[in-house]
Amino acid sequence: MTNSVNLDPLEEDFLIEIFNLGIGQAAASLSMMLQQEIEISVPEVRFIKFCDVSHHINASHDICCVTQSMESDFEVQSMLLFPEENSLEIVRCLMKESFSDEMILELQQEAILEIGNIVLNACIASFSKAIQVHFKIAPPLFEKLDSQNLSHSTFDKENVVFFVKVNLHLSESLIDGNVLFILKSESMRILQQKLHAILLSL
């Protein structure tokens, strides 16, 4: 993947480490909450344009999406995406009791919402600590999106996305999770300045 975002390798490395920490934190929270071990793969972090996101998601059907927007002197839209078929699997393996498919569907939205909330909050926390910025964070929202057409009214095709791909092993199931941090170009510039300042201080 070409670095379309003009981050230097060190800045990139820094961001990857931030997301590593975030995902690790999220896994810990989930593990504690669900009282089971959660294996996580080394997150793959990429920096891509928003219009390319759909190529990076292994989804043939709809996508379940949890978003939380963050705001300080710049704006970030954080998103967690699960392929729809996968998300049902998550809910099923998280449920202590066995439920019918119909029931799982009912629970899907709120369960995904909470998982998204946990994962995103962990990533945001890691991000916020690392760059020493305090964000105002909106409550999580659940959405279903079309995998082929991830267009989102608030974003431009050219907007930068920190795309984090991570596999979660829950019980017997392998789940593709995708965490996205989407920044508008203005925000991207501000973030870059901050990263630069921090790296200089090391």
């Binding site: 590593n20 920490l21 975030g22 995902i23 690790g24 934190q25 896994a27 810990a28 593990s31 504690m32 071990e37 959660i38 996580i40």
Partner: peptide
């Protein structure tokens, strides 16, 4: 040194 802070 790990980000995986699970008890296991």
């Amino acid at each position: 040194l790990t980000a995986n802070i699970q008890q296991s």
